[in-house]
Measured scan of single mutants.
Amino acid sequence: MGFKLLSKLLVYLTASIMAIASPLAFSVDSSGEYPTVSEIPVGEVRLYQIADGVWSHIATQSFDGAVYPSNGLIVRDGDELLLIDTAWGAKNTAALLAEIEKQIGLPVTRAVSTHFHDDRVGGVDVLRAAGVATYASPSTRRLAEVEGNEIPTHSLEGLSSSGDAVRFGPVELFYPGAAHSTDNLIVYVPSASVLYGGCAIYELSRTSAGNVADADLAEWPTSIERIQQHYPEAQFVIPGHGLPGGLDLLKHTTNVVKAHTNRSVVE
Results as ranks from 00 to 15, higher is better:
W220F: 15
S30P: 05
T222N: 04
L24M: 14
W88H: 07
P41W: 08
I151V: 14
F3P: 07
A218P: 09
D52S: 10
G2E: 13
Q229M: 05
G245D: 05
N184S: 10
I17T: 04
A259R: 05
R167S: 03
L195W: 00
I227K: 00
A95K: 07
Y48H: 03
A19C: 08
I104Q: 14
H115V: 00
A178T: 05
S264V: 13
E101F: 12
S161M: 06
G169H: 10
D64M: 15
C199I: 00
G242K: 01
V45I: 12
L249G: 02
H230L: 04
S181H: 01
D52G: 07
C199M: 01
V124M: 15
V112S: 01
V124A: 08
S205V: 10
G2I: 07
V45K: 12
P176R: 00
E225S: 04
S137N: 15
A218I: 03
L243E: 10
S30T: 15
D183V: 00
G32T: 03
N255M: 08
I100L: 04
D125G: 09
D77F: 13
H260W: 06
P170K: 07
A95G: 08
I20L: 09
Y196I: 03
I238F: 09
V257S: 06
G131L: 14
H252W: 08
E157F: 13
P221E: 05
T86F: 02
T140M: 02
L127T: 02
L156V: 07
K8A: 09
A213M: 13
V54S: 10
V187D: 01
Y68Q: 13
W55P: 01
Y68N: 10
T222P: 07
V256T: 10
Q229V: 04
A21M: 05
R167V: 03
Q235T: 02
D64V: 12
I50A: 10
S264C: 11
T207M: 15
Y68T: 14
I227D: 00
A111I: 05
S30I: 03
K4A: 07
V121N: 15
A51T: 05
A213L: 14
L250G: 09
H230V: 07
E150G: 10
H154K: 14
D52L: 07
L143S: 10
E225M: 03
D125A: 09
L217P: 03
W55F: 13
V75K: 10
Y196P: 00
K8I: 09
F26A: 12
L97D: 02
G105F: 03
G242R: 01
V189W: 03
D183K: 02
A15Q: 15
L173T: 12
S155W: 06
V112R: 01
L47C: 12
V54A: 07
A218H: 15
P170V: 07
Y175T: 05
Q229A: 12
Y135F: 03
E39V: 07
T93R: 00
G163Y: 10
D216L: 08
A25T: 08
I224K: 00
